[in-house]
Each structure stands twice: as structure tokens, then as C-alpha cells.
Design a protein around this nucleic acid. Structure first.
Length: 287
DNA sequence: TTCCAGGACCCTG
DNA sequence: CAGGGTCATGGA
């Protein structure tokens, strides 16, 4: 990977397995807007990052080198060798091979824990376009305006949000769950910072103390905010595609699928899950 | 109109 | 303890 600075922009080159479209459209994060072909603006870390990708470069517009090193390098998981991981997962598994080939440039983002937690609470029994709408509504109502967009609110900014105000953001029956998460965190019953050092299993146990956070939501937060790569979130799509390809199309309990994934994908479960999820959803597999 | 979505809660038996 | 009805919301 090569990094160069041109005027106020950062240029990345010689990087494999990076496709901004795959990364953003695969359903792991919700606060971005498409500006054009392979051109997006992402709102994270109190910044609006405009990013474009050409055949040769990935361009981080108007970005200080310090911000690239301190924020975006980790956010885009640039220290991980996805070529190696995709090659290991493709080996002896034609399903993964196909799913990876479909979206080679997918990477697991390292998202901010609070935003990730609230976003995936909202995700339950919901659709991705609607999740994006609701998360944006919350940002516009409780966050701060940067330039053209609003930040996702901090814990402090969401602390006094009432169920009625949340309902106005279309959170529906999840408003009480968000209230419970915010109150437990602001009361110090749960520290999103302290749990970072916990194992995957212990981290899940802590997150699941929040009302409205179960197996799947805690798995997503573990994977997308804390980089617990042994997590394998099982939603309707992952259930469908694993049943379709690995269980002869038969209805299979989630705990059985979990055991299967751990055995087959091991320390790379999180990556495998994301390739499978995106492929299944795009191809409507099992539906 | 009915069904369903990156589920989890809670009541019933 | 397992199973399934129920929960807002909006698009297909």
C-alpha cells in the first residue's frame, strides 16, 4: 500500500481488496450517502469524509494526514490482509469462493461502538433502507451539524431523549430498547470503552444485559465495533444461505448453524459471515 | 390486502 | 424450558 498527499487530499494506491462500493453497500454501516459512481460521503468520528475510488487510487478528499493515520486507517481496517483471508476462506469452499468473488473489495469497518449499538438495535425486524432512514432521523434530531450532514449523537446528547421524541424518528417498538441502552451506559452500569478488552463471549454477555439486545444484535456490535472476528451474526439471510448450501435446504436451528460456522470458519467467522450475508441478500438466495 | 424485514421479549403450555 | 404471538413501520 502506498500513501501520498496531493494538496489537501490523501491518495492510496497499490491496495488490494478495497472496493468502496462493496464496503458501504454490504449492509454493515448506515451513515453514508452516495454522491456518484464509487463516490461517497461517510459521516463518522465527527467528520464528513468524501471518498472516491478510481482504477488507480482511493482518494480521501480534504483529509489531514493525521486524521488518516489516527482515524481512517483503523476505520477501514487497513492493517488487515484481506487477500490472505479471502484466499484461506475460498480454499476448499466453493460457496465462499463465489461469495467473495461477488464482492472482493468488502472489508469489515471498525465502527464507533455507541452508534453501532443503537443502529443494530434499530435493525431488528427492519429493512436496511429503513434502518438508514431512522439512524439519519436520530442524527438530525439529536446530533450536531458538521457541514452538510449531522453527526450521530453522543451518549450525552441522547441521554435525555424521550420515548416520544424517539418515536418521531420512526424507531417504533425499539424506542424503549434505545432508552434502556442509553440509561444503562450513562448510569455507568455498562462501559462501552471497558468492554473492549473482553473476550468475544464476555463482551456479548455484557451487551445482552441491555433490553432489546439479543444474540444477533450483540454479534453485530461485537463484529462491527469491536472487531471480534469470531462473531458470526445469524440473521434471516445468513440463515437462508447456510441452510441452502450447507444443510441441504432444511430448516436448521440457529445454535446448530453457529456450531457449524465456528467449526468451518473459526477465527475468520466474521469475515465469512459478511461475504455470505451480502451475497445472499443481493442474489436473494433461499427466498 | 397481506407479507416481511441484518430480532427480541414475554406469555403460554 | 421451548415454542410462537407480538411488537411499529413502510415497501413490495
Amino acid at each position: 500500500m502506498k500513501i501520498s498527499k496531493k494538496k489537501s487530499d490523501i491518495y492510496l494506491s497499490d491496495i488490494e481488496n478495497f472496493n468502496i462500493e462493496d464496503i458501504l453497500e454490504c449492509g454493515q454501516c448506515f451513515r453514508f450517502h452516495k454522491l456518484g459512481d464509487k463516490k461517497y460521503v461517510i459521516i463518522a468520528h465527527k467528520r464528513e469524509l468524501t471518498i472516491t475510488q478510481t482504477d488507480e487510487f482511493i482518494i480521501f478528499h480534504d483529509t489531514a494526514k493525521k486524521d488518516f493515520e489516527n482515524i481512517w486507517f483503523d476505520y477501514f481496517d487497513l492493517n488487515t490482509d484481506y487477500k490472505k483471508i479471502s484466499s484461506i476462506l475460498s480454499e476448499n469452499d466453493s460457496v465462499l469462493k463465489e461469495a467473495i468473488n461477488f464482492a472482493k473489495g468488502t472489508r469489515i469497518l471498525r465502527q464507533e461502538p455507541f452508534e453501532c449499538l443503537i443502529s443494530f438495535i434499530i435493525s431488528q425486524n427492519n429493512r436496511i433502507p429503513m434502518i438508514k432512514t431512522v439512524v439519519n432521523n436520530i442524527s438530525e434530531k439529536f446530533g450536531e451539524k458538521i457541514e452538510n450532514y449531522y453527526t450521530f449523537p453522543s451518549i450525552e446528547e441522547l441521554k435525555n431523549a424521550t420515548v416520544e421524541e424517539l418515536n418521531e424518528c420512526k424507531t417504533g417498538f425499539r424506542s424503549g430498547y434505545i432508552r434502556d441502552a442509553v440509561s444503562k451506559i450513562s448510569a455507568g452500569e455498562l462501559s462501552l470503552c471497558d468492554i473492549e478488552k473482553l473476550s468475544y463471549a464476555d463482551l456479548k454477555t455484557e451487551l445482552m444485559k441491555i433490553k432489546g439486545v439479543g444474540e444477533k444484535v450483540s454479534d453485530c456490535v461485537a463484529l462491527f465495533a469491536y472487531a471480534k472476528l469470531d462473531a458470526f451474526p445469524i440473521d434471516v439471510w445468513v440463515k437462508r444461505i447456510t441452510e441452502h448450501f450447507y444443510f441441504d435446504g432444511k430448516d436448521t436451528a440457529k445454535d446448530k448453524i453457529e456450531v457449524f460456522a465456528k467449526e468451518k470458519f473459526g477465527e475468520y467467522s466474521g469475515y465469512a459471515q459478511q461475504y455470505l450475508f451480502h451475497y445472499a441478500r443481493m442474489k436473494q438466495i433461499g427466498k
